[in-house]
């Protein structure tokens, strides 16, 4: 009889654990951590955009849903409470990178330092190509920023 109770309790315990496990898996599976994920590709904004213009479908297969690290000159930057967006090459149809509100809150001092003309490296998830925005990266994190002047000096 005691054995039966023991087995019963054991099964009950297993049941509770697997139910909790399933619950945690479904509702608390962590999101991808772009900041920690190694980029699948490291690329210059100009080449990145050109590849999409050249063959959008092929590029989407190659880059879609992957973490990409992009470097280029900022042509538009706008920082809001609920996020920020940074654009390379061309305000319309360039490489459009957006930062989540949580990233903005955490790295506000670094982000608020970005100016148009700076050479900046970001890492984010590639969502594809849009005919108004160009190549879209979301959930971006800032990797590196060079001041406008120093980026010119480093070229010469």
């Amino acid at each position: 009889m005691k054995k039966l109770i023991k087995i019963g309790l054991l099964l009950f315990g297993i049941g509770i654990l697997s139910a909790t496990g399933t619950y945690l898996y479904v509702f608390h599976k962590p999101h991808r951590n772009i900041a920690k994920e190694k980029p699948s590709y490291i690329i210059d904004a100009v080449n990145f955009y050109d590849e999409f213009i050249h063959d959008e479908e092929e590029s989407y297969l190659k880059y879609g849903d992957k973490v990409i690290q992009v470097t280029g000159e900022v042509v538009e930057f706008n920082l809001r409470d609920n996020g920020a967006s940074l654009v390379y090459l061309n305000p319309l149809e360039g490489v459009n990178c957006s930062f989540d509100s949580t990233t903005v809150i955490r790295y506000n001092d670094k982000l608020s330092d970005i100016d148009v003309g700076d050479r900046v490296t970001v890492k984010g998830k590639c969502d594809g190509f849009d005919f108004i925005m160009g190549v879209v990266l979301t959930r971006c994190v800032l990797i590196e920023k060079q001041e406008y002047l120093s980026s010119i000096q480093s070229v010469h």
């Binding site: 898996y25 479904v26 509702f27 608390h28 599976k29 962590p30 999101h31 991808r32 879609g64 849903d65 989540d100 998830k125 969502d127 594809g128 190509f129 849009d130 005919f131 108004i132 879209v136 979301t138 959930r139």
Partner: peptide, 16 residues
Amino acid sequence: IVASTLVRSFKFREAL
């Protein structure tokens, strides 16, 4: 009016 977006830009609370 035109409006467009990418499906992968939708963000859910639950990753799964």
